[in-house]
Design a protein around this nucleic acid. Structure first.
Lengths: 175, 175
DNA sequence: TATTGTTATACTCTATAACTATA
DNA sequence: TATAGTTATAGAGTATAACAATA
């Protein structure tokens, strides 16, 4: 168990790390806020999923997820198909336009991080990634009082080809 | 230099770390939002300072800092004294009520972190702290495009005892 | 003329609650 | 009755711009 002063310092560091997140958010295109970028990233990384699963991964309320998804669907980056297992639900999937945008975003993220962290070794960045992942796990596995509940909903495994349709109201690749 | 995939992973980790910050924010008392807690923490950690210096440490615009400081001053946690070096400026200082509140906040932070990270060694938490600090330094020392400029303003060294007055409109320790 | 700080305004993100549709 | 998702509303955080006072 770590000393109290280490935890106090960690609280300060976590508070201050917001500045880095804001710096990263500033490199996003004007029409793609950070919430949208997070949705695209998770759909790419974990594959198609339902709203509830996405809300779990984002670790925000489903109402928040709903708004983010509505935004990326309206922009034509994500498709929503009916879920054959549950008619209340829809399956979310990154489409080609979304994948193209995400490619652009990834490039910007990588460029920026590579520029700022040019004196970090591969191993050092890897260690930071590992510890950040562990920090998150420590928080949502053990019950932090007041923390958003994690449900780990059992997934529908009827992975038949869904009927995906574009529901964008704007062109797939807006200026 | 680290591999691109490490930077992509870091971008994902930084995006996801917001959940931990939100969990921590939830343990704060209702009358003390995270912005206020950050101000109190910095004034305690770095001692009295001016608005511009605080804005620099918070890494946000001075207009944002102004609102945070107005809040903590109205609550009676921070005093604002005229700056003898510059009549446009005021010196901010944590007062006893603010120090008492911060004591309470620190205890909650430490309790929560100690509970969630009970299987972390002192050294591991220290390593995470070190890397987070380095990450921040890498971002605001090297010029990240679009990032908030860091001015490193020369400080006024006339450290004579300032004329501090409480400017709270509410009792120093509100319910 | 430049700088310090405040205020007004707008935008993003989040949570709670009320609601619809389906299980 | 319970669950998946949407929408309305409110609150916190931040940035830009216009402004006042002082350097």
């Amino acid at each position: 168990m770590a000393a109290q002063s280490q935890f106090a310092e960690l609280a300060r560091q976590l508070s201050a790390i917001g500045a880095v997140k804001r710096d990263l958010a500033r490199i996003l295109p004007a029409h793609c806020p950070a919430g949208s970028a997070a949705v695209l990233t998770l759909l790419d990384h974990h594959g198609e999923m339902r709203m509830s699963r996405l809300a779990e991964l984002l670790a925000v309320d489903m109402s928040v997820t709903s708004r983010h998804v509505a935004h990326v669907a309206e922009r034509g980056w994500v498709d929503r198909a009916p879920d054959p297992c549950d008619k209340r639900s829809r399956i979310l999937r990154l489409n080609p336009a979304g994948r193209a945008l995400l490619e652009e975003l990834s490039e910007r993220y990588i460029q920026t991080l590579a520029g700022a962290l040019d004196d970090w070794s591969d191993d050092e960045v890897g260690q930071l990634n590992t510890m950040l992942a562990r920090l998150r796990r420590s928080f949502d596995c053990l019950g932090v009082p007041g923390a958003a509940p994690v449900k780990h909903s059992g997934e529908c495994r009827a992975r038949s080809p869904h009927h995906f349709e574009h529901d964008a109201v704007t062109p797939a690749t807006p200026a």
